[in-house]
Design a protein around this nucleic acid. Structure first.
Length: 338
DNA sequence: AAACCATGCAACCGCCAGTAG
DNA sequence: CCTACTGGCGGTTGCATGGTT
């Protein structure tokens, strides 16, 4: 049908926000919460569309935002998460290679249409970086991290060595070139002894989500079958269609578990020796452990919902010099009195 | 000093899913 | 069931700024 932009109505301002507009929006949300975004412009006396207000709030005015440059650890985490979350299309790729039955093709078509958007999940990446927005991370990736990876000879899309990418995926190997999409697998030496985690991450029976379906097919070259060589633990080779279907379901479950369990994620990131791959220095302490000294471990690691965060997480400005725009201070001040 | 270029960032656009009427 | 609305997301654009020539 082609609806008009939400700002098509006349007299709606576009472009950069003025400090006055920021203040109006900030005061209104501070006082009343955002509620229905579409009604906020009118209530706050702004000549903006609700969508624009929402974006401004989320990307700039939110009090829990961490401004300033990204730390090395944050960059590294983004790269790792991009490798995991940014290449979801590989599921389809692999399954096309694996399955020859029409039934499965239909199933995967459905999957493509229903689940996979072939896009990078910036919002999910951002959810694992407290105080950072998806827009911010996306910008960082496009402007900085992609270049860094290329300079290190890594293809930023596939996370494979550029030489391997240039050789093409049909270079005589009959394996779909999945190995290497996740540096976690390709370049890990035997993992160090895991910390005392009660998760099943290090359980040999546990397979990380992205390996669940095709692990048996593509891990032959990277694992010798011993636990020592298997960082993530491989499932037994399964050829039954039913089992593959089950794996599909398990995969989704494990994805959810993986992405929502800070212990799993932290353990994975700590044990995949990314520095060996990206040659990025990793400090001894994960950044998210240093963010706060007062909150609970969960609070430190994973943001709660925005609604929960707003009044609770007033994080002092960490790089006030970078906040040339004083609205952030205003924000902090306003919420500091709540 | 001026022109040009590169970069980073804020904001917009379009699409999609969910939902209410 | 259909339509319109809303919120959310990812991709893209345009501008401001800083660096270089």
């Amino acid at each position: 049908m082609g609806r008009q932009s939400c700002c098509y109505k006349q007299k709606l301002r576009k472009g950069l926000w003025s400090p006055e507009e920021d203040e109006k929006l900030l005061r209104h949300i501070t006082k009343y919460g955002h509620g229905c975004w579409s009604s906020i412009p009118k209530q706050a006396g702004l000549q903006r569309c609700g969508k624009s207000c929402r974006l401004r709030w989320i990307n700039y005015l939110r009090p829990d935002l961490k401004r300033g440059t990204f730390s090395q650890e944050e960059e590294n985490l983004i790269i790792e998460l991009h490798a995991v979350l940014g290449n979801r299309y590989i599921h389809i790729h692999i399954h096309i290679h694996i399955c020859f039955f029409f039934f499965f093709l239909l199933g995967f078509l459905w999957r493509i249409l229903g689940f996979s958007r072939f896009s990078i999940r910036w919002s999910q990446i951002a959810a694992r970086l407290p105080g950072r927005t998806d827009n911010e991370i996306k910008n960082l990736w496009n402007s900085c991290l992609k270049k860094k990876l290329k300079q290190k000879g890594i293809d930023p899309v596939t996370h494979k060595p550029l030489s391997e990418v240039e050789n093409g995926e049909g270079n005589g190997s009959n394996k779909p070139s999945l190995v290497g999409r996740h540096p976690i697998h390709q370049y890990t030496s035997p993992p160090p002894t895991p910390p005392k985690l009660s998760s099943n991450w290090f359980n040999p029976e546990f397979s990380p989500p992205m390996t669940a379906s095709y692990g048996p097919l593509y891990y032959g070259t990277t694992t010798g079958g011993s636990a020592n060589n298997t960082t993530w633990g491989l499932v037994q080779t399964q050829t039954e269609e039913e089992e593959e279907e089950e794996e599909e379901e398990e995969e989704e479950t494990k994805w959810t578990e993986f992405l929502n369990n800070p212990l799993l994620m932290a353990a994975a990131l700590q044990n995949q020796t990314p520095q060996s791959y990206y040659n990025i220095e990793i400090k001894s302490e994960p950044f998210y452990l240093t963010n706060s000294s007062s909150s609970s471990s969960n609070d430190m690691w994973w943001p709660q919902t925005q609604q929960q965060q707003l009044p609770l997480q007033h994080e002092p400005l960490q790089n006030p010099d970078i906040c040339g725009k004083d609205m952030q201070r205003l924000t902090a001040a306003a919420f500091g009195h709540i």
